[in-house]
Design a protein around this nucleic acid. Sequence first.
DNA 1: TAGAATT
Length: 412
Amino acid sequence: MAVRLCDVASLLRSGSWAAEPWTGQVIAAMETQLSNGPTCNNTAHGSTAINNCSSPVDSGHTEDSKTNLIVNYLPQNMTQEELKSLFGSIGEIESCKLVRDKITGQSLGYGFVNYVDPKDAEKAINTLNGLRLQTKTIKVSYARPSSASIRDANLYVSGLPKTMTQKELEQLFSQYGRIITSRILVDQVTGVSRGVGFIRFDKRIEAEEAIKGLNGQKPPGATEPITVKFANNPSQKNNQAILSQLYHSPNRRYPAPLAQQAQRFRTKSACSLRECIKFQKLCFGHPSFRLDNLLNMAYGVKSRFPPMTIDGMTSLAGINIPGHAGTGWCIFVYNLAPDADESILWQMFGPFGAVTNVKVIRDFNTNKCKGFGFVTMTNYDEAAMAIASLNGYRLGDRVLQVSFKTNKTHKA
DNA sequence: TAGAATT
């Protein structure tokens, strides 16, 4: 049975699923960065799930800083290879590293990209800072030269007046040194400040001075004193939780060293599964609400890989074998403009889920886009949702055709 | 009263 994915998209938009906020939110996120470019402004977002991002750090004039970038607020399941793929679309990379927890192997959500050419590093900041990937807004900035003096310079501040803005918070702390990032946590539903936040200074010693000067003090106009202390390290907290869980697990049969048992958590699948469930709950409010289930409900399609027809283009969803050597699900994007580049594909598909690779097909002589490209996504459901939402999407004066790649088309 | 910012 042929199923038109554009009908599914309509169903998603107009049916009872329209009440589900996720699809609309993702499209809105995508459209924001399509219209404004990924570089975000510094206004606070209405949800703690979305990161604020400050302006890229101008870290000075050392040779190192002109090519070496730090990338923050990466999605938890993003791999080093995906990081390299994303930044490699800008220019040649000298080295790339995703920082992982030494014990659990989990991503710490940041990494480093060192370009060969300083111009590419600058371009990466201009192009990719503020890019939305899944629920994160990544930050791309020059890495400061690594030293002990810049470590452990993050402060946790509580008891803040609920009316205090991020700018006011920065004004309060800036007297003690150079602020790298600031954040006020807000209620996810109401957007109202929770009265707590973080200030990261350039130097540890600046943070120490801020504690001495501001802990227990009342900010101007405030009725209650604030508490200022060094922030806990989230990775340490997680490790403790995981190790504790391992130690108390009923499946634990041998008193093996905890670190050895923690090896079980090194596998990507363990992280991905948890992320996947979290993602599905976030998307649909219920883990059984998958796109293939929706197809089943809408069309009586029983197969997980139903044949689909999209705007007259025949496409078989099942030809990309899941788990096939990490290739994921390859998506064909047709009717791109001649000046389209990889960043637009990242901007469009990134918010829908884990994207491992994008590629714009160019004419060998002119280097202009030949009108199509490919996107590889890890998870079937995320890929299917991206297709359902983006097929028929108007990009500039062009209507895109988006489908799973068939064998007839170019091999990515 | 809790974010994955220095490899």
